[in-house]
Amino acid sequence: MNWTTVADVIAAACMLSGATLALIAAIGVLRLPDLLSRMHAATKPQVLGLLLVLTGLGFRLRDPEAIGVLVLVGLFQLFTSPVANHMVGRASFRAGQVDHDRLIVDELSDCLPQMEEPRGAP
């Protein structure tokens, strides 16, 4: 029982849970009824699942140069995935594809028409 075995076991556990989260996310994307709910299911593998898989890979490779790239992949994913999700969510809301029966509170639709301020880059 040396430390490489321990690292391998940790790697296996991380990868298994990451793959499980990815599978659950796929089930959610298929099953959930409307687009915005689906997007909530979709943010999971990109945040926790992917981070777990990358951590597992780091424990398995045990190579400092490779860990640099893995950290970079994780950081890029953390920075970019909220932006992408926000863009998709906003586009769907503005295109009027939101199922209003599913919202118990909707504080945006009331003030959307009078929002005339320019958005995007200042």
């Binding site: 909530h40 909220p82 999700n85 969510g89 906003r90 945006l108 959307l112």
Partner: peptide, 13 residues
């Protein structure tokens, strides 16, 4: 950004 990264919430506007 941090709230978006937590699953179950999403910034729309």
């Amino acid at each position: 950004e941090m709230i978006c990264l937590i699953p179950g919430s999403l910034a729309v506007e």
